[in-house]
Structures are given as structure tokens and as C-alpha cells.
Design a protein around this nucleic acid. Structure first.
Length: 612
DNA sequence: GCCGTTTTCGGCCCGACTGTTTTCAGTCG
């Protein structure tokens, strides 16, 4: 289990931003100060900020969402701000929002936003995050009781003023007070690595339940988002009451948040408290409910619009024909998508961008079963837990056709990295083990450090003896972008380096990584026949899905590596393939799907290419 | 605020749960 310092979750990926709410993380005042012209990301944030303020003002919900839609339209357009001549041409941007975009672009400010900021205390914004408090209730608290921030809200609750407002009661007041006091003790979203562990604990219990026909994960964990807010499960059962009773008795429960006929929400006390929502359905509605609660919200909206266009209505209970009222259900999500003329869209890809268009045609994504090998792992020769032979056995168990041992090089002393002499000895050992294997090729590799002075850590005479060379940065993270790029360029230009590992160095929720121009790196990697890594360790997921998609545009090869330090970590390949699906990577772009002969050919191309 | 080969006005995705109410608004996913 990973320890995360509360409040350290400051990494906010662009495609992670839940429009509006997520903004509460960001200090909007910082964004505005001293801005004369504005980049696309900043502009999008300003639109979202306007939406948040309008929410607090109690504005019309559709007006609020219009600003969010406009922000989304910009975000989903691949062009830069300068390239978008006429924003109003985009679907979701009309006269009003286009004018604001123009104003922001030209002056760096919006009159509307400035007015809103003067009208509404900024201390209210973080309060939107409190469970049970939305824009309307907060607006009432502000207008009636002069609540402007957490302190004044707490005071109003303590003096029992809140319960006297219409629409509020004693119970609501207590809940708000508890939430104010608890705010900040837990990050809003936790890294997926933490949530995967929590999910396993929940599933160990579910597996022992009676009267459960089947159950499945849903929500952002199923979509393999990098950070996850809570856990969702869909449970198929004919005996709802019996299952509910068992759910209420789950171990680790600290609170039962909701307990209705179709939904039970509990709070589980792990290192952090985690909310888990269970939806109980009859078997017939399982597939549509699973789809509904897998989301994303944006994806669901798109599916419902699609349904509406053909005279149908989608809900978790099925697809309703609007003229007859008949409800169709499906055995599987695949049937659901087929009904709308689409191929099965894997959960990870349901992000509400262009997936619906993409899956109108057959689209072959990567499955775990397509993976023929893993090119990044460690043994006891450096900082791994088991021997070369044991690791090889674990690879065979997973049905791999090939696999590479890649221990650290000498610069990484804390990991007992290998110097040239030990590398040569390890190669001999790997060859010996390989000879004893008749159903798998074991390759001799290295994960070589790129030193802070942009020098590669091992002599060329040794590198040329290795089958696979991975280059990576493990030091001097605070260097300038120029220095970092010099290091990466040194690796890309080496005829011996096949792969750049964890290209940004980030750790989800803990460390932002070094300053790297990823776009340039991807392009240059393609030109030099160097592959980039999708490090499948759930703490890293580096590169992320957005960059991987960019890599595909540059025709740069991607290798999904587990970076396993013990055998169990080889199973992170599952997570890795999920991220590849999210990125809509094609199979042929992924090295792991190559047969051994093709892999060997690939590993030789770069040397041949650069020598020519 | 946005949008329209049914529409330039009247919709905007849909339903469950809670806490407040005596039929519903607000919040959430």
C-alpha cells in the first residue's frame, strides 16, 4: 500500500478535469494575475470558473452548463487557440460564449468573470466540494446567513441558524457541520494504485456473498482513470433484501451513507475512508446498468443523444422505444453498443471524446491475450526481489513468448546498479537460463541511467552485447527543460538505446516528474526508431493516455512494460493494456504484440538505421 | 447560453436517494 500525504494530490491532468467541480483545487486568482494574453488551457479554466461562480449565484442550470460545454468544446478540439479562427463554429459555442472567448484571448480578462468575482466571495468556492452542498443551497446560505467561507459556515451551523432556513433541517445542518470539520483530511481523489488495492479487499468480501448472480466493477476504476474518487459495483441479484443485509455488515464500515432499494452506499475505513456505491439490479438490466454507472458522464450523454436521434431513450434499465414504450435489455454491453450500430467500446476508452465515431468502424485494440512479452523488469542483481530464473519462470507461467531482464546500471547505487563487468557476467547468466527454456526467449537487457551530465551510464562496448537497452532518468529532477532534453536527446541519438522508460518521471498524486517537452520527445523518438514506454506500474502510468495517442500520430512505437520488481508486479500488464485502450492505441503500434522474430528485427533496426 | 431536415421557442440525459415536505427540490453519479 502506498502512503500519500494528504493534500499532496496536486497533479491535475487535463483530461482528468471534471469540468467545474475540480476547479476548486485551483487558485483562480493566481490564474488571473498579470495575464496579458492567454493560452488555451488557461482560457478553458476561466470558462469553467465562470460556470462555478454562476452556480453559486443560483443561475439557470442550463446556462451554467453552457459555459462548461463551451470549455469542453475547446478542450476536445485538437487545435491550438491560435489555430481556431472562429470558436462559434464549434458545436456548443454560440454567440455569448464566443464573445467571452474573444475577450479573454485579447485582453486576458473577462468582464463577466470580474463582475462575478466582485459579487461573490471566493471563499464559497471550496465549499461546493462539501457533500450535500450544491450551488443552490450555498447561494441560499450566502444570501440568508452571510456565509462566505468555511469559518462562517461552521459558525452558522453551530448557532443552529441553518436548520431554520426553508429547505434545510437539523439533519442537514449536522451533516454540513461534520463535512466542514472533516474537509481537508482526505484528498478528493486517490491514485488508482491505492484504489485497486481497496477494490480487491471489497471483492474478497463480495466473493463470499450469497444470492449474488454476478457483480462487476463500474465507475472510474473500471475506466482506469489515474485517480479515483469512490468505488462502484453493480450486483445482479433476485434477492435484493438479502444482499443489502450482507452489504450493511461488510467489515471496515464506518458509515452507511445511503440505503435504498436499488442502492447501498457505505463508507469504508481503510487508510483513507472510501465511499463504495453498490447498485442492485435484476439480471435483465445488468448490462445497461453496468454501462450507465461505468460512464463517463460525458460518454453517457453522447450515447443518450445518439439514442434520442433514433427515437429511443437510454437509462440504466434499458433502451426504451419512445413510440411504444417497450424496453429492450441486453445480455452484454456489446449487445447494447451493437444496437446503436457501434462496435464494443472498451470501458477505458469511454471518455466522451471521439470514441463513438471511432467505434462506428471495427477497431482493434489490445487485449491482455495479445501481449507476447514484457521488456522491463528487475532481479536480485539490482533491486528486484527474485532471481533471473525465478522471474523467467513467472514469465512462462503468463504464457509469454519472450521477455527481457533489465536491471539497473551502476549510476543508481541505491539499487545496486550493475557496472560493465557485472553486466557482462549477467549476460552470461541470462544466456544460460535461456538455454534451459524451450518455450520462451529470455533477452539480456539493461535499464541504463542517463546521467545528469547527459552521458549514458555504460560503455558502448558493453551496450552492443545487450539485446535490449532501456534508457531512463532517475536523478536531478529539478534540472531545466533544456538540460533534461539534452539528456533525453543523448539517449535518442545512441544507436544502442531502444526504449525511453517512464518518459516524464511522474508518480501519480505524489511527484510531478521532470520538465520534459514530451511532444518533441515523441516526434524525435519516431525519427530515431526509438520506442517510448508505457510504464504499467499503477503509481506511474507513464506516459499517460493523452501522450500515447500523440505517439501514435507520430508513428512512434510504444512498449508496455511492467517494470516489475517482484513477480506479482508482472500482472500490472493488465493495467497497462487498459491505458493503451484508453489511448486508442492500435495493436501494430505496440511492441508487446510482436512475434519474437519481429521483435528481434525491431531491436536491430535502430542500429542499422543510424549506421546507414 | 445553445440549438434546430419536426422547432427561432422550448427544450436541454436520466433516475435514485435524502431530507424536507405532505408532493418535491436538491444533490449526486
Amino acid at each position: 500500500m502506498v502512503y500519500i500525504e494528504p493534500g499532496s494530490l496536486d497533479i491535475c491532468r487535463q483530461d482528468e478535469i471534471q469540468l467545474g467541480r475540480q476547479l476548486c483545487f485551483c487558485s483562480t486568482s493566481i490564474l488571473l494575475e498579470g495575464v496579458t494574453c492567454m493560452n488555451k488551457k488557461e482560457l478553458i479554466k476561466h470558462l469553467e470558473t465562470i460556470a462555478v461562480y454562476l452556480e453559486l449565484k443560483g443561475e439557470n442550470a442550463f446556462k451554467i452548463s453552457a459555459y462548461r460545454k463551451a470549455a469542453q468544446a475547446l478542450e476536445q478540439d485538437e487545435r491550438s487557440l491560435r489555430e481556431i479562427d472562429d470558436p462559434a463554429a464549434l458545436n456548443g459555442i454560440g454567440k455569448g460564449t464566443a464573445a467571452i472567448i474573444k475577450e479573454l484571448r485579447e485582453t486576458g480578462q473577462s468582464e463577466l468573470l470580474e463582475t462575478l468575482k466582485q459579487e461573490i466571495p471566493s471563499g464559497l468556492i471550496p465549499l461546493l466540494k462539501l457533500p450535500g452542498l450544491g450551488g443552490k443551497k450555498l447561494a441560499k446560505l450566502y444570501q440568508e446567513l452571510d456565509v462566505v467561507d468555511a469559518a462562517s459556515l461552521k459558525e452558522a451551523c453551530e448557532q443552529e441558524q441553518v436548520q431554520q432556513l426553508p429547505g434545510f433541517g437539523a439533519k442537514t445542518e449536522q451533516k454540513i457541520l461534520a463535512a466542514v470539520q472533516e474537509q481537508g483530511t482526505r484528498p478528493e481523489r486517490l491514485p488508482i494504485s491505492y484504489m485497486l488495492d481497496a477494490a480487491q479487499k471489497v471483492e474478497t468480501e463480495l466473493n463470499q456473498f450469497e444470492d449474488v448472480k454476478r457483480y462487476a466493477r463500474a465507475g472510474s476504476l473500471r475506466r482506469m482513470e489515474e485517480t479515483v474518487k469512490d468505488l462502484d459495483y453493480i450486483i445482479s441479484t433476485e434477492k435484493g433484501d438479502a444482499v443489502r443485509a450482507q452489504l450493511r455488515k461488510l467489515p471496515f464500515i464506518s458509515d452507511i451513507v445511503a440505503d435504498g432499494e436499488t442502492k447501498v452506499s457505505v463508507e469504508l475505513d481503510f487508510e483513507y475512508s472510501i465511499q463504495v456505491d453498490f447498485r442492485l439490479v435484476e439480471e435483465a438490466a445488468f448490462a445497461t446498468t453496468l454501462h450507465h454507472f461505468t460512464g463517463s458522464k460525458e460518454h453517457n450523454v453522447m450515447m443518450r443523444q445518439l439514442a434520442k436521434a433514433q427515437g429511443e431513450k437510454v437509462s440504466e434499465y434499458g433502451v426504451e422505444k419512445q413510440d411504444t414504450g417497450d424496453v429492450i435489455t441486453f445480455e452484454s454491453e456489446e449487445g447494447f453498443y451493437n444496437h446503436f450500430g457501434l462496435h464494443y467500446i472498451p470501458p477505458e476508452a469511454r471518455i466522451g471524446r471521439d470514441e463513438i465515431n471511432v467505434y462506428k468502424e471495427p477497431f482493434e485494440t489490445v487485449q491482455k491475450t495479445d501481449i507476447r512479452g514484457d521488456l522491463h523488469m528487475h532481479t536480485t542483481w539490482s533491486d528486484g526481489a527474485v532471481s533471473i530464473r525465478e522471474m523467467a519462470e513467472e514469465g512462462r507461467k503468463r504464457g509469454y513468448e519472450w521477455m527481457a531482464v533489465t536491471d539497473h546500471s551502476k549510476f543508481l547505487q541505491v539499487a545496486h546498479g550493475l557496472d560493465e563487468e557485472r553486466v557482462l557476467r549477467q549476460i552470461e547468466e541470462i544466456r544460460r537460463v535461456n538455454e534451459s527454456l524451450d518455450d520462451m526467449e529470455l533477452l539480456a537487457g539493461i535499464e541504463m541511467d542517463i546521467r545528469p551530465d547527459a552521458v549514458l551510464d555504460l560503455e558502448e562496448s558493453v551496450l552492443k552485447e545487450l539485446d535490449v537497452v532501456i534508457a531512463s532518468i532517475h536523478s536531478s529532477f529539478s534540472q531545466t527543460e533544456e538540460e533534461i532534453m539534452q539528456r533525453l536527446e543523448a539517449a535518442l541519438n545512441s544507436p544502442y538505446v531502444h526504449i525511453i522508460a517512464h518518459p516524464t518521471g511522474r508518480l501519480i498524486g505524489r511527484r510531478e516528474g521532470y520538465k520534459v517537452n514530451v511532444d518533441w520527445l515523441l516526434k524525435r523518438a519516431g525519427e530515431t526508431q526509438t520506442a517510448v514506454e508505457l510504464n504499467a506500474n499503477p503509481n506511474r502510468l507513464d506516459l499517460n493516455a493523452g501522450w500515447l495517442r500523440k505517439a501514435q500520430e507520430y508513428e512512434t512505437f510504444v512498449t508496455i512494460n511492467t517494470d516489475a520488481h517482484h513477480p506479482g508486479m508482472l500482472d500490472d500488464m493488465e493495467v497497462g493494456t487498459g491505458i493503451a485502450r484508453k489511448a486508442l492505441l492500435k495493436k501494430e503500434q505496440i511492441i508487446n504484440t510482436k512475434r519474437y522474430e519481429d521483435l528481434a528485427a525491431f531491436l536491430h533496426t535502430k542500429r542499422a538505421h543510424l549506421k546507414a
